[in-house]
């Protein structure tokens, strides 16, 4: 009940709805960090996962790389980079990208490997170019799983982007970190609720994207 009370008082406080520390501003900041990190991670993870998955080579190296990236502690990385390189966007982006690349990379690779070999064989036998086989035969079938990897990366980023506040940047983490130092639990709970809501919205967006982009012929349970 305590928590619920905090939530209502946080959201009914008019002061939380405007200004540079208002919910819209913080939400937008949080979204911006998250999208940037997800975009960067996808830019790295997707092509590498697609190509290695298509050729079926380098799977072990990929797993090793993903394990190493997963092993790096996100929060420690943030503090370390701040100490070495100073404040800015970089200390936030690097840990978030390191966090998001493994799920994207590994799921994309495995999604491509899970495509049945017979349509690929048929496509090759029909004289389809390798790039077309990858993009038009394998990718559409692997898409649901790939979207799943992106979704899980997105959720992790949204949850973790709160660390930006620890290094004096904005985002929804502002409420949590400030709340912690000001012993204002209402703020902490309000911020956490917003992050969870954003995650929920992200799930919905990915669900809709899957509905729109995945062919009805590709049935995924």
């Amino acid at each position: 009940m305590n928590v619920l009370h905090f939530v209502t008082s946080f959201f009914t406080d008019g002061a939380h709805w405007s200004g540079y520390d208002g919910i819209p501003t913080r939400l937008l900041e949080h979204l911006t960090y998250s999208l940037e990190a997800l975009g960067l991670a996808a830019l790295i993870g997707l092509p590498v996962g697609l190509v290695t998955g298509h050729y079926g080579k380098g799977g072990n190296a990929l797993t090793l790389l993903a394990t190493a990236a997963r092993a790096l502690p996100t929060f420690g990385l943030l503090v370390l980079i701040v100490m070495v390189a100073g404040f800015g966007m970089l200390p936030v982006m690097i840990p978030l990208v390191v966090l998001a690349v493994p799920p994207i990379l590994v799921t994309t690779y495995e999604a491509m490997r899970s495509v049945e070999p017979s349509p690929v064989d048929a496509a090759r036998g029909m004289g389809m170019r390798e790039s077309d086989i990858l993009l038009r035969v394998e990718l559409p079938v692997a898409l649901p799983l790939i979207l799943g990897g992106l979704r899980s990366a997105a959720i992790q980023i949204i949850s973790t982007a709160t660390i930006a506040a620890y290094v004096s940047l904005g985002g929804l983490g502002r409420y949590i970190v400030d709340g912690l130092y000001q012993h204002n639990y209402e703020k902490v709970v309000g911020g956490a609720t917003l992050v969870a809501a954003l995650a929920l919205a992200t799930l919905a967006v990915f669900w809709a994207a899957a509905r729109a982009a995945v062919s009805p012929g590709v049935r995924q349970t």
Binding site: S159, I176, V188, A192, L198, A199, L200
Partner: peptide, 21 residues
């Protein structure tokens, strides 16, 4: 799956702070 995912999305720091009570 949905419930675990949303719980997972709660930032660890916020989770800790709430539990301190």
């Amino acid at each position: 799956l949905w419930v675990t995912t949303v719980l997972y999305a709660i930032p660890s720091l916020a989770f800790f702070v709430v539990l301190i009570d």
